[in-house]
C-alpha cells in the first residue's frame, strides 16, 4: 500500500495565507477583503505587502460580500476572508443574489470550518456550509485537506472564472500532499489503490482516511482512498471507476451527513451504480466546545470511525 509522510503539522489556513501572498505578487487583479479576522485568516502578509489592494471591512460580513461582488465590475478578483460560519450562513442571501445569481467572480475563503475549530463551540463550528454552498447554481465548492493543497487551491481558484467557496480549517494537521502539486478543480486525487472498499474523504478527514487505510491493511483489507477536494463539480468518473471495482464506499467529511459530500456521492451512485455506502459525518447535530481531537473522536470523525465503517460496509456487499 502506498504510504504518505507527514512533513510536519501545520494549519490549512496558513496555506491560504501563503497562497494569497503569492497571488499578491503574481496577479495585480487579486484584491482581499476581511471582516476583522485578518490574523486568524493569515491574511497579514498580503495586507502588509499590498495595502492598496487590501480592504478591512470591519465586522460586517453582508457588506463585505456585496462590496466583493461590486469590485468584480471593473475586473478585480476579490478574495473574502472570515470564519466559515460567517462566510456562508450569515450571508447566504447576499451570496445567492449578488454573487451566485449575478455570476460574479468572487472567491469566498472560509476558515475555522467544522468541529476542529474547537473551544469556541457550536456558534462558530459550522457543519452545514458545504450543503449551503453546493446548492447554489454555478458555485464551485472546494474543501482542502492540508497546507500544501490549500496553498495550491488558493492560487488555482484565481484563474477560475466564477464564484468559488474555498473551505479550510483552524488546527495544525498533517501536511502530506506534494509541495509542487498541480491543483485541478474538479479532479479527484486517488491516494491509495485498493480492491475491497473505496474511502472518499475531504478536508481534514483525508489524512484520517489514510490512517484508516493503514489500519485496514494490517487486517488484510485493501482500501482505495480518494481525496475529493472539489465537492462541486464532483469528479463522478473517478468515484464510479473506483466503486465499480470495490463495490462499496465510505464517505468521510467534517460536516453534517445531510447536505455534504456523502450525499453528493450517494446521488452519483444512485443514478449510475448503486452500491452500499456508509457515512462518516456528524449526524444532524450541532457541535460543542472542546479540544479538536476529542471532538472528532466524540462525533466519530477520525481514522477509527472510518475503519469501523469500512468494515461494516464491506459486510453489506452482495
Amino acid at each position: 500500500m502506498k504510504t504518505y509522510k507527514n512533513t510536519g503539522n501545520i494549519d490549512t489556513r496558513s496555506g491560504f495565507g501563503a497562497g494569497l501572498a503569492e497571488l499578491g505578487k503574481s496577479n495585480p487583479d487579486v484584491v482581499a477583503l476581511c471582516a476583522d479576522l485578518t490574523g486568524s485568516l493569515k491574511m497579514d502578509e498580503f495586507k502588509d505587502s499590498h495595502p492598496d489592494r487590501f480592504f478591512q471591512i470591519g465586522i460586517a460580513e453582508a457588506n463585505m460580500i456585496g462590496i466583493a461582488a461590486g469590485m468584480t465590475i471593473g475586473g478585480k478578483i476579490p478574495f473574502t476572508g472570515t470564519f466559515a460560519n460567517f462566510s456562508t450562513g450569515r450571508v447566504y442571501d447576499q451570496i445567492r443574489q449578488s454573487v451566485a445569481y449575478s455570476g460574479k467572480n468572487v472567491k469566498i475563503c472560509a476558515s475555522h470550518a467544522g468541529l476542529t475549530l474547537g473551544e469556541d463551540g457550536a456558534t462558530h463550528q459550522i457543519l452545514e456550509d458545504l450543503g449551503l454552498m453546493k446548492m447554489l447554481p454555478g458555485m464551485t465548492v472546494i474543501n482542502t485537506c492540508d497546507y500544501n493543497q490549500t496553498k495550491a487551491a488558493t492560487i488555482a481558484i484565481a484563474k477560475h472564472e466564477g464564484p468559488v467557496y474555498l473551505r479550510f480549517g483552524r488546527p495544525k494537521v498533517a501536511n502530506f500532499t506534494p509541495e509542487d502539486q498541480k491543483f485541478e478543480i474538479g479532479k479527484a486525487v486517488t491516494l491509495t489503490e485498493g480492491n475491497d472498499v473505496t474511502i472518499i474523504a475531504t478536508g481534514h478527514l483525508v489524512w484520517e482516511a489514510l490512517e484508516a487505510a493503514k489500519a485496514l491493511d494490517e487486517k488484510g483489507i485493501s482500501a482505495e482512498v480518494i481525496n475529493i477536494h472539489t465537492i462541486k463539480p464532483l469528479d463522478e468518473k473517478a468515484i464510479l471507476k473506483s466503486v465499480r471495482k470495490t463495490k462499496c464506499v465510505v464517505t468521510a467529511e467534517e460536516h453534517n451527513m445531510l447536505g455534504g459530500l456523502g450525499e453528493s456521492v450517494a446521488r452519483t451512485l444512485a443514478l449510475n451504480h448503486p452500491a452500499p455506502q456508509e457515512f462518516v459525518a456528524t449526524e444532524d447535530t450541532f457541535g460543542e466546545s472542546g479540544e479538536p481531537l476529542m471532538l472528532l473522536d466524540k462525533y466519530g470523525l477520525n481514522a477509527k470511525a472510518i475503519s469501523e465503517k469500512a468494515e461494516a460496509v464491506i459486510l453489506r456487499k452482495e
Partner: peptide
Amino acid sequence: RIASGSLGQGMSVAIGAALTKKMN
C-alpha cells in the same frame, strides 16, 4: 450589472464598484 430584488444589497455593490474605479 448586478441582480437586485432581495432588498438592501445594492449599496454594498455600488461601494465595491466605486472602490474598483479608484483602484483602476
